[in-house]
Amino acid sequence: MADREPPGFELPLLLFAGFRSLIDQLHAELAERGHPDVRPAYGFAMQAIGAHGASASEIGRRLGVSKQAAGKTVDRLAALGYVERVDDPQDARRKLIRLTPRGIDSLAQAAEIFDRLRAQWVHKLGADRVTQLESSLRTVVPNAGFPVDVPGWFG
C-alpha cells in the first residue's frame, strides 16, 4: 500500500498549502515589522500597481477584478498610507495610483522575508531539493511571468 501513487487531487492541495504557509508566515512577520494591516490581497494589488503606478482600470485588469473592486482595494490602501492618487502626466482626465514610501517599504520587507522563508525551506529540505522543486515547477508552469490576479481568480 505504501507504493501506491497518491491521488491526483493531493498535488494542488499540497502546492496551495505550501503557498498558504509562506503567505501566512510573511504576513505575521510583516505585522511585527510595522505593517499589521497588510493583507494578501493588498500585496497582490501593490504588485499590480508596480514601480511606475497604474490606473484603477489597469489594476483591475492585472488583478482580474472589476475596476470598482480594484477601486475599493485602492481606497483601503490609500487609507492605510500604502498608495496615493496623483494626476496622470499622460492624461489629465485620469488619476494614477502610486505606491507611497510606506507601500514601497512593505514590498521591500516582504522580499527580505521571502528570502528568509526560502532559506528556512533550504535548511529543512536541503538546497538541492529546493532548487529541484523550483526548477520542476518552472518546467510545468507556463512562462507568463508571475500572476498577480489571484484575488480575481479566487473570486
Score class of each variant (00 low, 15 high):
D3L: 10
D3V: 05
P6V: 11
P7I: 12
P7S: 12
G8F: 04
E10L: 15
E10H: 02
L11F: 14
L13Q: 12
L13S: 06
L13K: 06
F16E: 02
F16Q: 02
F19S: 03
F19G: 01
F19Y: 13
R20V: 08
D24N: 14
Q25W: 01
L26T: 08
A28D: 13
E29G: 02
A31H: 03
R33M: 09
G34K: 04
H35N: 04
H35W: 04
D37H: 13
V38A: 11
V38H: 02
V38P: 02
P40L: 09
A41C: 04
Y42D: 15
F44G: 00
F44Y: 15
F44H: 14
A48T: 05
A51D: 11
A51V: 10
G53Y: 04
S55W: 03
A56F: 01
A56W: 00
S57C: 00
I59Q: 03
R62H: 05
G64V: 04
G64K: 07
V65K: 01
S66G: 13
K67C: 02
Q68D: 13
K72L: 11
T73L: 14
T73I: 15
V74D: 01
L77R: 08
A78P: 01
A79K: 15
L80W: 03
Y82H: 10
V83N: 06
E84V: 10
R85V: 05
D87C: 01
D88Y: 05
A92H: 09
R93V: 04
R93Y: 07
R94N: 04
K95I: 01
K95F: 03
I97F: 00
R98N: 07
L99G: 06
G103Y: 02
G103P: 03
G103S: 05
I104V: 12
I104P: 00
I104D: 03
D105H: 09
D105Q: 13
D105M: 04
Q109C: 04
A110G: 06
A111V: 09
E112Q: 15
I113H: 06
F114T: 07
F114N: 11
D115S: 13
R116V: 10
A119S: 14
W121P: 00
H123E: 15
K124E: 13
A127F: 01
A127E: 15
T131V: 11
Q132N: 11
L133R: 05
S135Y: 02
S135P: 00
S136V: 00
V141L: 15
N143S: 14
G145E: 08
G145Y: 10
G145R: 09
F146W: 12
V148D: 02
V148I: 06
W153H: 11
G155R: 10
